[in-house]
Amino acid sequence: MWNRKDLVGLKDLSQDQIMEILELAKAMREKIDNKEARKDSLKKFSVLTLFYENSTRTKTSFTMAAEFLGADVNDLGISTSSVKKGESLIDTAKNLDQMGADIMIMRHGMTGAPHLIAKNCRGSVVNAGDGVNEHPTQALLDMFTIHEHKGKFQGLKIVIIGDIKHSRVARSNVFGLTKMGANVVLAGPSTMITSNMKALGADVTSDLNAAVKDADVIIGLRIQLERQKAGMFPDIREYSQLFGINKKLLSLAKDDVIVMHPGPVNRGVEMSTDIIDGDNSLILDQVKNGVAVRMAVIKLLMEGRKNNGITN
């Protein structure tokens, strides 16, 4: 039985809780496939999206998931809101909480911001990305996609390539995947990984060939072009040639390797076009699974609220 009020990260979830989400997501995915997504809607509830950083995709995915479940979804336009007037995050959230949102879906540029709101509000908080910390629903949809194709996590070699240090997607994936028994390898330029990442339970290397050898899953990360100015790599040309995911690199992995990317992809930079559009790529499946996973998360949080007698 689900009893967590919030979903702020995968770091604190148990194996069972992760499986509970993934199993429910499977049912949601079937409903979406059968055009029955709306059939399972809950009693009226309200969802608020607060995106302090822009992300049309993630916000849309959450919004659709919530609407499929029958929620009234409101978006707090950050650029027009009181945030611009210098109101503190806690005050903004407490005010919104008073308006009675059951679930607040929040993206924020600072690590720990959703945790702060979760502590201070009655509404359930879903972290849609905080600082360089976590992006739990993205990792859950990655895990769902992996499980869908591999049928397990135990013993899989999963390689995440790119700017690990600044990737909340990578971090949530490491927390989730290692918990489920997968072997996670983090690979990228040494300026974008640190050996401290071993504390997360993953292997860390700058040797891409060794990393990818016999891999079951490869996840590429979006490279932020600003990092160039911060001295992390010399230029796009060198990055794509030394650290891009291409045919040659892929040939070192297992034949049935699957390739994923949280999007949006810089074609030809972190991943070559033939890989993005190739047979091993599941990048578009990920998008569809994203809605299913988010439906599952919202549904469980609403159940949790009912079980714990929380109303807002």
């Binding site: 770091k11 690590t111 720990g112 905080d130 600082g131 360089v132 910390n133 976590e134 909340r168 971090r171 640190t194 401290n196 990442m197 071993k198 504390a199 997360l200």
Partner: peptide, 14 residues
């Protein structure tokens, strides 16, 4: 915002 070490890796902090 915190020491560069295992905890900053765990907590996702700059």
């Amino acid at each position: 915002f915190m020491n560069a070490g295992e905890m900053s890796a765990l907590l996702g902090m700059k």
